[in-house]
Amino acid sequence: MKSPAFDYIRARSVAHALEAYRDLDGEGVYLAGGHSVVPSLALRLQAPAALIDLSGIDALTGISLDDGWLRIGSMTRHAEIASDPLIRDHARLFHLAAPHVAHPAIRNRGTVGGSLSLADPASEFPAVALALRAELEVAGRDGIRRVKADDFFLDIYETAMEPGEILQAIFVPPVRTGEVCAFDELARRRGDYAMVGAAVQAVVEAGRLADISIAFFSVGNKPTRAGAAEAVLRENAMNDTAIAAAQAALDADLDPSDEPQMPASVRRHLARVLLGRLLGHLGTTA
């Protein structure tokens, strides 16, 4: 399990990284925490000519409030996501999800930007970005653009970023009054990728759900907003009937694949159970 040979470039700036990528003519791979790239090299699943290390670029770090929006630099490590007070207060779902991502030592290296760029459908953070309705700031040769999370995740390991583009930061919209959230996953062992997981954020006004976003992961080929379930719940009171209706609506929302060890019907069942539990939990916190 030794990696194939490659060169290594430590990028000084986003511009430097973009240039290095262009010079490598499609043979370069960006390196953030490396905790997905390095194992895949050890497994010889890819053989890049060079790794372009983004982790030293100052512009990609830092967590700050900007006009009510929370900006999270893409190189922010999972461990900081778990412990940072701004994230706890302004992007609570990230705070709740972080302890479920792998194990402590992996969280010391893995970056939120790496996780979102990789777009593993079993990963926690992409679903969190969806539930938070975050926006992703992407730099490319033609400049900088912002992509809504809803438009970012396209397929398994596929995002709206063009080859060579760099995810610079995640922007989380301002916290609304009455906002509540819940996160959980069903995993075989602590830290494993989940069998099914979900992030839910809602705004409760006078006992009604003024707004709700529900995002599942590990169900299907990308993190998935449960639009039908959301529609059932929106503008309603949270009670057992509403929860049951939302659970039933999930069938239209989710399209899990059929695998010998996890048939689609089982994932659907687990998704319904999990949603019921998360909504029940929201009901008690609201």
Partner: peptide, 13 residues
């Protein structure tokens, strides 16, 4: 005894 097998035993799937 995986979750899948337990769920099958319980008749959930």
């Amino acid at each position: 005894m995986t979750p899948l097998r337990v769920l099958k035993a319980l008749g959930h799937v």
